[in-house]
Design a protein around this nucleic acid. Structure first.
Lengths: 232, 232
DNA sequence: CGCCAGTTTGACCAAGATCAACGCAAGTGG
DNA sequence: CCACTTGCGTTGATCTTGGTCAAACTGGCG
């Protein structure tokens, strides 16, 4: 029964450094500080839209506080969440004229927004900045690649385990984890349904891998088991 | 029966410009020409490895002829193909020290390879080049995002339809389509099994949407039906 | 207290995976 | 030139994972 959530993956394996951290904690980079001086703050309330699919992509963003989800609604209502962005992450660094996804505040959130025109000028005069932006995008790209593997080839327990580990790593909180997003958000992020997410979490709980004091708070009790589950 | 492969998607909808074209046909851009003067050619035979997971990522690549797949093998043998790159596409523009995916020749292929050290020097002196590289990566990123939607939320028929449309667009051949890759490659790219890919293709054939003169050659007879199937 | 939104659990269902033949064309060696 | 092999591709039968539908539970909050 302890094994009930074991997927197809067979064995223990060493963790791999390439974890899916997007562009978190990048505020330290010197050139980006200049970029942020162009920014202005805006607050959003729970579920408020920061930008919509189809909007002109004339701004770049950074999460100041709260959590942002990048998502897309299909014609028939199926929803997909491409990414969550936590405090410190940049997002919305699209090229092209129009957004192909929308961005929404998961709970109340504050974001800094940088007009593209001005940032572009800054980039043109600061080659290092261009490189660093490329690196930010590449980190996002690497994250997207590992998410493709997850969505294409991993089982439900593997996806959920990976989600927990990803959030723990990005927020640097291993003991107890607070999840700002709903079960529906998690499901749409992992390509599962709400019910499956719940069931897998319950299975983890039964196995003693996690404790769930409240829906938005999860304690990780057996980190090794989780890591093992979510390794390629 | 004609409707047998209709997924959950409900209705006709206008095609969206944001198709998943990676970084094809970018050789025209002036700054990139300079980059390519640093390159040297290498040939690979069918299934030969161009670089392996874990290799130092000290080169960037461009497909000269043939097709390249970017893939990852999981511990228990599950395989995932992150991307196909056709003639003219750049690939392997990773940052970080080690490759997190491997690259292999689908059939016989010729690629140009550009040492990173030298390209870096060129970038440092040519700010436009840095921007253009960022754009290349962003295009790949956008492609990865739409693939996440596919892998996370689309049905088997939708995935296969989308694959056919994607290949048709990237190779600019709408009437008849030649697929350099095997059914196994297609399956691992779409997050399906070989059998499912075959069955869906057969269903399309029965419905008169496509004709399959030979396994690696497919004629598109009802492009609208395909487009309709693969729209978000 | 009752309502409401979000979560959890259970019973059942279906899309797609798995397992197993079979087909078919391109080598290969006698 | 023709058996025989080999590697894909296709098809069918059956099984499993995760989805769907429905009901119960939980913690705020007016």
């Amino acid at each position: 029964m302890t094994q009930e959530f074991r997927g197809r993956a067979s064995s223990t394996r060493v963790a791999q450094a390439e974890h899916g951290v997007a562009i978190a904690r990048s505020g330290q980079i010197a050139e980006l500080v200049a970029l942020e001086q162009l920014g202005m703050r805006r607050s959003f309330t729970r579920d408020e839209e920061i930008y919509a699919e189809g909007d002109a992509s004339d701004c770049w963003f950074k999460v100041v506080s709260g959590t942002v989800r990048i998502c897309k609604l299909m014609a028939d209502g199926r929803r997909h969440i491409a990414a969550f962005h936590f405090s410190g992450d940049y997002f919305g660094l699209d090229i092209g004229t129009a957004r192909s996804f929308s961005a929404e505040a998961v709970g109340d959130a504050v974001v800094m927004l940088m007009p593209r025109r001005a940032t572009q000028r800054l980039i043109d005069t600061t080659p290092e900045l261009a490189c660093q932006l490329r690196d930010l995008v590449m980190r996002d790209f690497a994250h997207a690649q590992s998410r493709m593997l997850l969505l294409g080839r991993m089982t439900a327990p593997e996806r959920v385990a990976r989600f927990l580990v990803e959030v723990a790593e990005r927020r640097d909180s291993w003991r107890t984890l607070d999840l700002p997003m709903s079960r529906a958000d998690i499901a749409d992020y992992l390509g599962l349904t709400i019910e499956t997410v719940c069931r897998v979490l319950s299975a983890f709980k039964r196995a003693g891998v996690i404790v769930i004091p409240s829906p938005h708070r999860i304690e990780l009790r057996d980190r090794d088991m989780l890591s093992e589950l979510c390794e390629a």
